[in-house]
Design a binder for these strands. Structure first.
Length: 817
DNA sequence: GCGGATCAC
DNA sequence: TATGGTGATCCGC
């Protein structure tokens, strides 16, 4: 039919426009018809897949995610009433596992070093963890969960997924008695003294608990109009038969049994259930009803970062593409399929459609086991070897407990600059004893020590991991071969003996043999070291080689934080990380600042200092962009349905905004916005940017948009001479600078910026003048794309702005009819 | 199989 | 003064 063809053409046009490739003059350079078709094919492929996913959407399961509130802290508070009204955290001076909600108001959170937390909240009480206790409580909770799904999946001590589909079916016919629970209120004399809100068996008092289960201990309102709500009769309560009621019942029982509260999410799949459990936390629950519209509505404005699996790195990469919400993730599906691996874009597509696992997979077999330890600097080789040996012993012990043996030994080293290295070796037959593991690990460690010779390895962490556990098939095979071996009356040693023999020999190998590339003097020094090492190797290792941290001394208190507790008004805070004053910001904003400060390891202080100016510029740049994007994204309501193609094109409306944003960025950079942010938190990003980089967008009138970055000779050598090929225009890029390359790809993907430039007769000068093409093979494209991705798509330049498209709308259905 | 990276808890 | 430990997975090589 003709109309079908028209639709198809429109679709093509829109697709090209969306990808910035529809303008023959601007976008088509380097793109022949064949390549355009390729891109279209790619996009249609994505949409076909999206359709398939949509059609296979399964809404028949009821998945529940249960998450205990501030679990470790709650247990500690329960067991020590003195802690109940105080800000507490569980962990150590160096790292906190969790904090109670009181402490969270000060910005004290899990994964924060305790000493930083103390600066935020000087009265914070840090309780050392007591995992045995948490395990016991966890067990109690799990006993309850098993009533609803015997195959529930525990993710940790405080988190689990349940599939209550079957329970729900059975429950429909249950008599009231079976859904009736008696309320235990604890000591009634004590209860009399408490206010209604405080009449709680829970140690947690949540001010902002959702209304459905507000006052713990009196969990349900008797006057509720909702049929769904449980009926409270005297000292008992009857729960209904809906999923919501089941989950209320679970939470009620957990609280009755453990005096602890839990939050829960109910949804048709695990991905959504997990997000839901966070929604009304603490002590709340949320359900996404099992229909497509409900899922769609929930997903619409959901920030992708909320989804389990999207971490801060992915968040940032996607943000660089203008993607913050799930809707935007869906809109950019075709682009994502070009930029990311299949696994990744499939994952993204699932997320953006609100899809996830509908059944709980049984835990597979363990794939690795490891031990690692952080300590204060250890530079002496002999201490490093002792430590390694200790770790191997621990690992062997753990392996023995599970009766495991593996073939791959991996060591992990982190130096004082937080640079992490792993080195692995796979041996022919399984190892499990401390000696066997150490024999392999020692070699790996030695290689690393030798590689840096004469400089010592300044370590702050060492780890040993074992993997490649044989599966049943392997075991059988191995057994057969051993039997065959013995039956052949061969004189050879058992396999593990061979390994030992080999490594024992290696242990005494002469340094020359290991490092033939080293100088004579190096070898001599190595020899000396090794003779020393050999002398030491038989020493018993009962001395403490892991240096424990020094006792923490309470740092000077910052009174600002005391005041902060009861006030959300703007005031001056001092960041405990960068020590800079943060004026006129709310407590919340301040906490975000601290988060930013804490984010990212303080890698290579030298880099920060040697490129301070650039670094700072980049930081400001980056942040001003993200800020801008965030606000823009949320102020424009994007109306996009999940399968409709309303998003095919961005309007020209946003073109000027984009051009403006480049200017704005330059200005912001000059004005030095965000001067209070520490540069060290962002070194990783800045690293790639410290190369020569001049971007000039010049028009015929001589007007130009110019960006220049100074070249740091120190970094020049780090820039390899890669031939970067843009995956969009398929042109080889002159630059080897990754950030510049990223920018090119970005601009290429948003060709309307170029169009705008063209309107002003502004041409980018960094485009290759010769039209040297790459092979154009999809492999190549994939390769370069991946490189972009893996080096961090930290695009800090022109970013597209998402605006509700006003172009013609098409649906997939029409296109495929 | 190795090594770097990311992620969750 | 000081920033964790364990396990899994992905990806390029």
């Amino acid at each position: 039919m003709d109309s079908t063809k028209e639709k198809s053409d429109d679709y093509k046009d829109d697709l090209l426009l969306r990808m910035g490739l529809n303008d023959n003059k601007a976008g088509m350079e380097g793109l022949d018809k064949e390549k355009i078709n390729k891109i279209i094919m790619e996009a249609t492929k994505v949409d076909r897949f999206a359709m398939e996913l949509e059609q296979s959407r399964d809404l028949n399961n009821t998945i529940v995610h249960i998450d205990m509130d501030a679990f470790y802290a709650a247990v500690e508070m329960r067991d020590n009433p003195e802690l109940k009204k105080k800000p507490i955290a569980v962990g150590s001076v160096s790292m906190l596992s969790t904090s109670n909600y009181h402490a969270r108001r000060f910005g004290v959170r899990a994964a924060m070093p305790g000493f930083i937390a103390k600066r935020l909240c000087p009265q914070l009480i840090i309780v050392p963890p007591n995992f045995d206790k948490y395990r016991a409580v966890s067990k109690e909770v799990k006993e309850i969960l098993a009533d609803y799904d015997p195959n529930f999946m525990a993710m940790s001590l405080d988190e689990a997924y349940l599939n209550i589909t079957k329970h729900l079916q059975e429950r429909q016919n249950w008599p009231e008695d079976k859904r009736k629970y008696f309320i235990k209120t604890g000591n009634s004399a004590e209860n009399d003294k408490l206010t209604e809100h405080e009449l709680s068996i829970s140690p947690l008092l949540f001010e902002d608990s959702p209304p459905d289960l507000q006052a713990p201990g009196i969990p349900f309102q008797t006057n509720s109009e909702e049929q769904n709500n449980p009926q409270i009769l005297q000292n008992s309560v009857v729960f209904g038969t809906s999923a919501e009621e089941v989950v209320k019942e679970i939470r009620f029982r957990i609280e009755q049994k453990t005096t602890l509260t839990a939050s829960a999410g109910i949804a048709p799949n695990t991905m959504l259930a997990k997000v839901c459990s966070d929604k009304n936390k603490p002590n709340g629950q949320y359900q996404i009803l099992p229909n497509r519209q409900a899922v769609k509505d929930f997903i619409k404005d959901l920030p992708i970062r909320k989804i389990s699996g999207i971490g801060k790195v992915t968040e940032k990469m996607l943000k660089a593409l203008g993607i913050i919400t799930c809707t935007e993730l869906y809109q950019q599906r075709a682009l994502l399929s070009l930029l990311f691996s299949e696994t990744s874009w499939h994952y993204f597509l699932h997320i953006s459609l609100g899809l996830g696992s509908t059944h709980l997979e049984r835990d597979g077999e363990r794939k690795s086991m490891s031990v690692e330890r952080t300590f204060s600097e250890i530079s002496k080789a002999e201490e490093q070897y002792s430590l390694c040996q200790e770790l191997c012993s621990e690992l062997a012990h753990d392996l023995q407990k599970e009766g495991l043996k593996g073939r791959t030994v991996t060591i992990k080293l982190k130096n004082v600059n937080f640079e992490v290295k792993t080195r692995a070796s796979t041996v022919s037959s399984v190892v499990s004893t401390a000696e066997e593991i150490f024999a392999v690990a020692k070699d790996l460690l030695r290689t690393e020590i030798d590689a840096d010779f004469p400089h010592p390895l300044k370590l702050r962490l060492m780890g040993v991991r074992i993997s490649s556990f044989p599966n049943e098939e392997d075991k059988k095979h191995q057994q057969r071969s051993i039997i065959g071996f013995l039956q052949a009356r061969n004189q050879a040693l058992p396999a593990s003996g061979c390994v030992l023999e080999k490594t024992d020999k290696d242990q005494f190998i002469k340094p020359q043999e290991i490092t033939p590339q080293k100088s004579f003097f190096d070898k001599k020094r190595s020899e000396m070291k090794w003779s020393h090492q050999d002398a030491c190797k038989c020493e018993t290792l009962n001395k403490q080689s892991v240096h424990t941290s020094q006792p923490f001394q309470v740092s000077k208190m910052n009174e600002n934080f005391e005041a902060a507790e009861n006030s959300d008004s703007c005031q001056i805070f001092t960041c405990p990380v960068c020590f800079r004053e943060q004026e006129n910001i709310s407590l919340e904003a301040f906490n975000r600042h601290v988060d930013a400060c804490l984010r990212g390891p303080s890698v290579s202080e030298e880099h920060a200092s040697s490129s301070e100016i650039n670094t700072k510029e980049n930081v400001h740049h980056s942040l001003s962009l993200s800020e801008k994007q965030t606000s823009e994204t949320h102020e424009n309501n994007i109306e996009v349905t999940l399968v409709d193609y309303e998003d095919l094109a961005e309007t020209r409306d946003n073109i000027s905004t984009k051009a403006e944003s480049i200017d704005a960025l330059n200005n912001k950079e000059r004005e030095g916005e965000y001067p209070s942010l520490p540069s060290k938190s962002f070194n990783m990003e800045c690293f790639h940017q410290n190369s020569s980089c001049t971007v000039s967008l010049e028009n015929q009138d001589g007007r130009s948009l110019n960006r220049q970055k100074s070249l740091q000779p120190h970094f020049q050598e780090m820039i390899t001479d890669q031939a970067l090929v843009c995956p969009v225009c398929n042109l080889k890029q002159k630059t080897s600078d990754l950030s510049l390359f990223n920018m090119h790809v970005d601009v290429c993907l948003n060709k309307d910026i170029i169009q705008e430039m063209r309107k002003d007769k502004v041409n980018p000068v960094n485009q290759p003048k010769d039209n040297s093409r790459s092979t154009g093979s999809s492999d190549k494209v994939q390769k370069m794309v991946t490189r972009t991705k893996r080096t961090g798509l930290t695009t800090k330049y022109s970013r597209s702005k998402k605006i509700k498209p006003n172009h013609s709308k098409h649906t997939l259905d029409l296109f495929f009819k």
